[in-house]
Structures are given as C-alpha cells and as structure tokens.
Simulated scan of single mutants.
Amino acid sequence: MRIHTFTNTPTMPVEVTERSLSELTDAMQYTGFQGRKLAESVKAWENMFKEEGVTIFMGLSGAMVPAGMRNIITYLIENRLIDCLVSTGANIFHDCHEALGLRHYVGSHIADDCELLGHGIDRIYDVFAYEEEFRNTDHFVANFTRKHDGKTYSSREFIRLLGKEISEKGNRNSIIVSAYKHNVPIFIPALSDSSIGIGLTIARRNGYNINIDQIKDVDEITQMVEASEKTGVVYVGGGVPKNFIQQTEVVASIMGHDVAGHEYAIQYTTDAPHWGGLSGCTFDEAVSWGKISREAKKVQVFVDATIALPIVAHALNEKTKDHKRKAPCFEWNRDGIELCFKTS
C-alpha cells in the first residue's frame, strides 16, 4: 500500500464497548467531522489546563443557564478549568434567579405562545418560566442596588458584590456564588442588555443609582492579559463575550505590551463563518487581527453547546481530577493588578 505524509494516520471506527467518557472522546480523535473536533477540543482544554502559566478565559453566550448548563459552569469555576468568565447578562440573571430558589421548567417548542402569554409564562425555545417570578428577581437586583447607591463599579466588582449577597442567603449552588468564593472574576460587558439592567433601571427610577463603568471593564480584563504569561480562550457561542475577550490582545498591544495573541482557542458554536458574523468567524481570521497567536492551538466545534458541554465537562473531569493546577489569582488595588498562583 502506498504511504504518503498526508496519510500517516488512518481513521479508526469507534467500537461500542464499556468505557468512560474520556476514553470515548480519545477514540473519537480518530474519526471525522465534528465528532473529531469535539474530541480535539477536550485534548486542547486538558493541555491548556495542565500547562503552567496559562490564564483561561471563558466567553458564555446563548441561554445556557435556562437550558440546564448552570452546574457545568459552576464545576468549571470550582475546579479552575477557567480563571475568568465573560458572560451575557442574561445567563447571570438566570443564575441569580435559580440561586434565589426559583426555577425554569421543561416545556415545548410547539406550545401556543398566545396561551402561554395568558398564563404569564415566558418561553425560551422549549424551556418555560414565570414572568412574575422573573420580575421578582428584577426587584431583588433593584433592592440590592440600594445598598450601593451612588457608587461606581466595573461589572466585575458589581457581580462580585451580588455573589457575596446571594452567598449570605445560603444558596451556594450558583455561578456567581462559586466565582465569589473561588475568586474567579466575572465580567458582563453588555450588562444593560439583560434583566440585571432592568433591575438597575427600576432602582434608578426609585432614586437609587449604581454606575456600571464598562470602560473600566475593558481596562481590568486587559490588565489580566498583560499580567499573564500566556492566555487561552474557550467560547460557548460568540457575540459580545467573544469579542470582549478577543480585543484584550489588541488593547494590550496598543498600550505597549508585547503580546502575541491568545495561545489556546476553543469554540463551540452553531454559527457559520460565511455570513461574516463574529460568532461564526474562524480563529484563523482572528490571527489577522492579532487576537489569536499564529501558533495557537485552535479548535472550533460546530455543535449545539448543550450537547458539547456535558460531554466535554465529564471527559475533563476524568482527565484532570488528579492534577493539582497552580491557578492564577488576580487582585486589584490602587496600584493596579497583582497576580499570584494557588494550587487548585
């Protein structure tokens, strides 16, 4: 048989047998299409986790919390598989909602939406929730604002305070509570575009106001990149969280720092690159902007994240549970940012 450099590694059919999820994803590395890409993403994330000096950023978009991915993100935080979370405001609002003892419900995508409206039920594809309960959470945020009237915070500072507030109410099963307890910063660069923004608006109408300084957000997250030896990114979907993390490399470069772009890059998305949108654009395209390193380990998986995340998280749990990582910890003070490492 003729052997060529292009054909050194044959594909291998996946055998049906008793095995762990990480053993399955290992086997999938020798298949094709998005199955192989999913397996490659597990390997890249494992390598990123085990390499010393790498700060791991996650961008979270899409309705992941209502769709049941909340505890997976909490697991990633608590086990320091990520060091910073950049999220839509909606995901963090829904996390607060559940942390306060309220729920989302299994529904149907073919429900009669006019009938749902009559019953005060909101629909997120095939997930239901009560509008009145959402409004109760809006008012919880508004009432929380009263304690900090007149203050200016970055979204990171504000969400940390909100996580502390919820932790004191006894509910620890939460993304923002876990982030607060494990000192993992959460940024929400489009905070006003969410029900958290609605809560802040209610407070403002009632005479209480917090100023969320989103430019401070840009500065703070860029300081994290500037202080890090290497950086890696994991994107669930795209949108604002993706670009907010991507642009840190550009900002750091403009500020005179010698940065080469993020050195690991993983994305789970259902968007395609040929529409020109950021959510589907390739990491190769990002290289042209200096946002991703030329030598970066890049894996994009075109898949529904609600399929990918449970598989990937369980495989990573098996692959990393015995590894003691020195996770980066960031502290902001009057003189800027300080970086230290603590074993996770």
Rank of each mutant, 00 (worst) to 15 (best):
R2L: 15
I3K: 10
T5S: 11
F6M: 15
P10E: 14
V14P: 08
E15T: 06
E15D: 07
L24M: 10
A27C: 11
M28F: 12
G32Q: 06
A39K: 02
A44I: 14
E51N: 15
E52F: 11
G53E: 11
G53L: 09
G53W: 08
V54D: 15
V54R: 13
T55G: 12
I56A: 11
G59F: 01
G59L: 01
A67K: 09
M69D: 15
M69V: 13
R70P: 07
I72R: 10
R80Y: 10
I82D: 03
A90Y: 00
N91P: 11
D95P: 03
E98T: 03
A99I: 03
L100Q: 05
G101E: 09
V106S: 11
G107V: 10
E115R: 11
I124L: 08
I124T: 12
V127H: 12
Y130M: 02
R135N: 13
N136R: 14
D138A: 08
A142L: 04
F144R: 00
G150A: 10
G150S: 05
K164S: 08
S167C: 00
N173A: 02
V177E: 08
S178H: 08
A179W: 02
I186D: 00
S194I: 02
I198L: 09
L200A: 02
L200V: 00
K216Q: 00
D219Q: 04
I221T: 06
S228F: 13
S228V: 10
G232E: 14
Y235S: 07
P241Q: 03
K242Q: 12
N243W: 09
I245K: 10
I245N: 12
Q246P: 14
Q247M: 15
S253L: 12
M255K: 13
H257F: 12
H257E: 09
D258C: 07
D258E: 10
D258G: 04
E263M: 11
A265D: 15
Y268Q: 02
T270A: 11
D271I: 00
S279W: 05
C281N: 09
K291E: 09
A296Y: 09
Q300R: 14
I307C: 06
P310A: 07
K319E: 03
T320Y: 08
T320H: 11
K321I: 06
D322N: 09
D322W: 07
K326P: 06
F330C: 00
W332G: 04
E338K: 13
S344F: 04
